[in-house]
Write a protein that binds this DNA or RNA. Structure first.
Length: 202
DNA sequence: TAAGTAGTGGCCCCTAACGC
DNA sequence: GCGTTAGGGGCCACTACTTA
């Protein structure tokens, strides 16, 4: 542990996310042989092949799968620790952010957001993408910096801010059996329904 | 079967650390 | 200050596998 190289964790994290030496190399801006050599060190360190070749792909071993979440959290914590003292100067910072949101929010925010960014942070680039292009775990990857959308079950390390709330109304015919029963979400979802969204968000 | 893709190993260069 | 050594990383050739 005394001579442990924490860069190995970063490399391991990239390898476990991509399951590819080449992709991990591209992500970390080094060449594939460099990653390959670090992977050998990781294998010796954990006494496990970590990734085994299957055809043209690399498949994580059970131990690697077990390590993946811990490694990801460790790397995230180290990165946030190192970034603690960083200051953000909007006028001078050159950086790009990727924001995932649904189509309504993208349409609503587009003009206002870009005008404000151009005015206060001319060197900041915003890439708006549709959230439908990503799976439930998208915030865990480094592809997305911010998600704007409906509340859902997120992991505790995800910071959440409520920026808008809306009421949800249900309409049904007179005498519908649901009127005489429990109006819980579980019960409501037992029936067929049509969903519409209007003036959202304001 | 040939072309493309991706992993692997050997060799080399560069740099930092260390000892004299 | 200089020579030695170890480690990191790139280049290149080779191998294995997939796909058209």
């Amino acid at each position: 542990m005394n001579n442990f190289d924490f860069n190995l964790l970063v490399v391991l994290n990239a390898l476990l996310e991509d399951c590819s030496v080449n992709l991990a190399a591209r992500k970390l801006n080094v060449t594939a042989p460099a990653i390959r050599k670090l992977l050998n060190k990781i294998r010796a360190l954990f006494n496990d092949p970590i990734l085994v070749r299957s055809g043209t792909k690399l498949i994580p071993t059970p131990k690697a799968i077990a390590l993946k979440e811990d490694v990801r959290q460790l790397v995230n914590r180290i990165e946030s620790m190192l970034n603690t003292n960083m200051t953000f100067e909007p006028h001078t910072t050159i950086v790009s952010f990727t924001i995932a949101a649904n189509a309504t929010i993208v349409f609503t925010l587009n003009a206002l957001l870009f005008c404000e960014v151009q005015r206060s942070a001319p060197n900041v680039f915003i890439n708006l993408v549709h959230d439908s292009d990503y799976d439930d775990d998208f915030l865990r990857s480094n592809d997305i910096d911010l998600y704007i959308g409906e509340m859902c079950d997120l992991n505790p390390e995800i910071t959440i801010r409520i920026i808008h709330s809306a009421k949800c109304y249900f309409m049904c015919r007179c005498g519908h059996p649901i009127l005489a029963s429990d109006k819980s979400m579980d019960n409501l979802l037992k029936y067929h329904f049509m969903q519409t969204k209007e003036k959202y968000p304001k």
